Simulated scan of single mutants.
Amino acid sequence: MARAATTTDAFNAIAEPRRRDIIECLTHGELAVGELGTAVGQSQPQVSKHLRVLKDVGIVTARDEGRRRLYRINGAALRPVHQWTSQFEHLWNQRFDRMDRVLAELQDEES
């Protein structure tokens, strides 16, 4: 089966770990390409390629400020990812609750 293009939706775009790193950096505010490159340890051309994919699916937007182009997150574009992952929240909570009970039992046995 052919792999879907990375520009088709948010899921494919965030499948790349470096793109997730870029998104994480942008949660702190707008950044220019060079600043992002320093933050994620990649060259400007590499970061620019990742930003293009993220921009094509709408996850990031850009605005010009003088000679700089600043990128920021468009949270609405990540909504489908959030909606899909949130359906598993109850499962994670159940497992964490179970782990808490086991840890409490182990601590009681040690006492």
Rank of each mutant, 00 (worst) to 15 (best):
L70T: 01
N74Y: 06
L51R: 01
R72M: 14
R20Y: 09
H50W: 07
H90Q: 13
L36Y: 05
L26Y: 02
V40I: 15
A4L: 12
L26C: 10
H82Q: 08
T7Q: 03
L54I: 13
T61R: 06
G34Y: 08
W84D: 12
K55M: 06
Q44Y: 13
D100Y: 08
H28Y: 07
Q107M: 06
G29Q: 04
M99Q: 10
S111C: 03
K55E: 08
L26S: 00
V33A: 04
L91E: 08
I23L: 13
A77F: 05
D56M: 02
V60C: 09
E24Q: 10
V47Y: 04
S111I: 08
G34A: 09
C25V: 11
Q107S: 09
A76M: 07
E105R: 15
N12F: 11
D56T: 06
G37E: 02
A5G: 08
A76W: 02
L103Y: 06
L31Y: 07
G75D: 03
N74K: 06
G41D: 01
D21M: 11
I22D: 00
E30W: 09
S111K: 07
N12S: 13
W84H: 05
E65G: 12
A32E: 05
D21Q: 14
N12C: 14
D64G: 13
V102M: 10
E105Q: 13
E109A: 15
E16L: 12
T38P: 02
V57I: 03
R79Q: 06
T6Y: 11
